[in-house]
Amino acid sequence: MDLTAALATHRLVAVVRGDDPDAALHTVLALVEEGVELVEVSLAGKDALSVIERARHALGPDRPLGAGTVLTARDARAAHSAGADFAVTPGLGDGVGAARELGMPVLGGVLTPTEVIAARALGVAALKLFPIAQAGGAEYLKALRGPFPDAPFVPVGGVDEAAARSCLAAGAIAVGVGSPLVGDAADGGSLTALRERARAFRKAVQEATA
C-alpha cells in the first residue's frame, strides 16, 4: 500500500490497544464502520496478533490494517504473517528494516531532528512524532518543520480533538489517536460511545483540512 498517500487522504490513524482481544477486534471493526480508514493494532495489547489476524479476515484483503509497537524484526515478521500491511514503530529499532524488507511501509517513531534524518535514511513512509503532547504539541511540530518543511509528520501521543485540529493546521500530514478516541472500548467499554467519538474526530479532522 501507499501509506503516505493514505495518510494524506484520511488524515487520521486510530491506535487500538487493549486487554480484551474480542473487544479490541470489535473496536477495530466499529472504527472502520464509522469511516476511520486507517487503524493500527498495537502489539502491546493482549493477543494482538490474533486480533490482527481476525480483523484481516473480517475486513478482507483490501482494507488498510497496521501493526503498532513494532520493536524488533521478529515483531515485524509476526505482524506481516498475521495480515498487517503497514507497521508503526515508537522508535527506529530493528523492526523498521525488517518491515521494509517484507514490503510493509513504516510509520517510524521520531522526536528529534537527528531521528528525523535517521528515519528518512531508513526509508520510512512517514514520521510518527511521538510523544507530541509532552514535546510541546503543535508549536513543537511547527519548529521541527522549519528544517524539514516537506517531511510527512504524524503527531501521536495525547492527541485530543483540539490537538488534532492544531497539529493538522500546523502542517501534519495526519494525526494518530489512541485513548482520546478509543477510550475503554478495547477493554470491553461502550462501542456506542466509541462510535460517537469516532464521528467527532472525523468531523474535527475534516474541518481542520477543509
Score class of each variant (00 low, 15 high):
L168I: 15
V110L: 15
K203R: 13
A162K: 14
H10C: 03
L59C: 02
E37C: 07
E34I: 12
L31T: 02
A55V: 09
V39A: 00
A198E: 02
L122I: 08
E115V: 11
A58W: 14
T114S: 07
R199D: 14
E161C: 11
R202P: 06
Q206V: 09
L181D: 03
V182C: 09
G178K: 02
A143M: 15
D85A: 12
L49I: 06
A143C: 07
R17C: 07
E37N: 14
G60D: 05
D187F: 15
R197D: 04
K142M: 11
A143Y: 11
L107H: 01
P21V: 09
I132L: 01
G183Y: 09
G137D: 14
G60K: 03
G176V: 07
P131M: 03
S179Q: 10
A76L: 15
F86W: 07
L92A: 13
A79S: 11
L43D: 01
V106E: 08
L92V: 02
E196M: 11
P152T: 05
A84R: 00
A185F: 13
A55Y: 00
L25A: 00
A126T: 03
G146W: 07
G171T: 04
V13E: 00
H80D: 08
A24W: 01
H80P: 10
R11C: 04
S190L: 04
S190R: 04
A125L: 13
V110A: 02
H26L: 10
E34G: 13
T72Y: 14
F130Y: 09
G137Y: 06
A162N: 11
R54T: 12
V41E: 01
G108D: 00
R195A: 12
K128R: 08
G35H: 11
R145E: 06
D150R: 04
L12Y: 01
A99S: 10
E139M: 14
A118E: 14
G158A: 05
G136Q: 09
G158K: 06
G108A: 02
G83P: 02
D85Q: 07
T72D: 12
L111N: 12
V205A: 02
A151H: 10
A164L: 05
R11W: 10
A67K: 12
T9F: 10
A87P: 02
P64T: 03
G157C: 15
L191I: 12
T112R: 14
L144C: 15
A198M: 14
L122C: 09
G157M: 11
